[in-house]
Design a protein around this nucleic acid. Structure first.
Lengths: 229, 229
DNA sequence: ACAATAGTGTCTATGAGACATTATTGC
DNA sequence: GCAATAATGTCTCATAGACACTATTGT
């Protein structure tokens, strides 16, 4: 007697894409075209296809719904949400991925979405998100805040080349704090593998040109860059 | 036209239960009674029931297969594994939970398992585990090692009352390092909320009695207790 | 007294935080 | 020169790591 697998849930993926725009922590959201919560905001996502890996499904749904493609950007699994009541349509278990992306091109809504935008996290949380997506977004922000302490991932939120001041503004936007520019500069440039100098400088108006850096090679910061408590 | 949910996967839960026995990092494993990998080791786990929350399913399966009940112990979500080929029986998406438990009673195999034991992680990894469970166990150990740095969770691996030396041996077992007893003592007792003194001491043979502590109230260690690199 | 384990003290190097100063651009 | 931004330097204090010493038990 062979074991017969019983399909007991609809597995979905959602994506929290965080980015910094105008010194403000923003997230990518879509307007729902269908019930439940039609017309409201939600995280981009959808159901996994047969034979499709979870990360691949996350990237596919993201592109389908928002036109955003995350090639070469940081993406990691955030958590999985499977509360029986989280989706009124039935048992949906959603694996959620977190991406930290530099300045994104303006998203374009796909056929499943009535709109797609990059909005400040605070505004999204004030307006509320469908399902348990408000909670998920919170979890994503918490994770990002923590990871900035002990990884060089903040560089993922900058462009390919960036200045120390840009990196500092990323930290400030994500953490919601201010950081001393002098101490931050010393910390960033003295932590091995955090950033790599390019030798080039920015052309700036009305100030000394800043040195340009690329992301370093380290996976973790030693010692970490702890946020003020 | 109403939306019809399509069930596309069998959602399962597995549990990585880590504990320290004889100064060695150990994990709870079951011997598989059925194919695939019948007779081999695997993590305890099984399929989620309709209407059942994921953490509840994890605790239920753990108890069914090993007799171990994790009331009042630390449990958190580790990650979710959904690779299409990870289970030869079909599309199984598994949400895995991680628990750090103090000395466990000897497990008793349930009807689904041919055996249940607490074994050194190194031995389990040497023998290999079913499915992708070797990888999952590794991820669990990595998570535990990291969390010991910036949370007081090591206390979860001790009994309700413990000495500083016991706590240190937990750190040493999980990290696979040795730690200076004097510096460790100073660190533990000076970090706010790490441990709470009970005023009582141990009755010991051949040495000065040690002060007994209970787990502190802090969720995070400030500053963290970084492992030597 | 001695062995064994627990706990305290001391020194030094490193890193964090506060803050002044110098450097390099555009106007 | 002046405004604006970038980068460096200088203190002080907290913490980590190395290691000597004292304390409290059983035998």
């Amino acid at each position: 007697m062979a074991f017969q697998l019983r399909l007991n849930a609809a597995v979905a993926v959602d994506v929290v894409v965080l980015t910094v725009r105008a010194d403000t922590l923003c997230a990518l959201a879509v307007r729902r075209r269908f019930e439940p919560n039609r017309g409201g905001w939600a995280l981009p996502g959808g159901f996994v296809l047969d034979g499709e890996d979870l990360p691949a499904a996350a990237l596919r749904e993201l592109t389908e719904e928002t036109g955003v493609s995350l090639d070469r950007m940081h993406i990691e699994q955030l958590a999985t949400y499977g509360d029986p009541g989280r989706d009124p349509r039935g048992r949906v278990v959603s694996a959620v991925y977190l991406s930290l992306a530099p300045a994104l091109p303006d998203p374009v809504a796909g056929s499943d979405a009535a709109g797609a935008e990059v909005l400040p996290v605070a505004r999204l949380q004030a307006e509320g998100l469908a399902f348990d997506h408000s909670r998920i977004l919170d979890d994503g922000v918490d994770r990002a805040r923590a990871k900035l302490e002990y990884t060089p991932l903040a560089a993922s939120l900058c462009g390919p080349e960036f200045t120390v001041a840009e990196l500092r503004r990323v930290y400030q936007a994500v953490w919601g704090t201010t950081l001393d520019p002098r101490n931050f500069h010393r910390k960033v440039t003295s932590t091995p593998g955090f950033v790599t100098p390019t030798g080039r400088t920015t052309a700036r108006d009305g100030g000394r040109p800043a040195e340009l850096f690329t992301a370093g090679t380290a996976d973790y910061l030693h010692p970490p860059l702890l946020r003020p408590r």
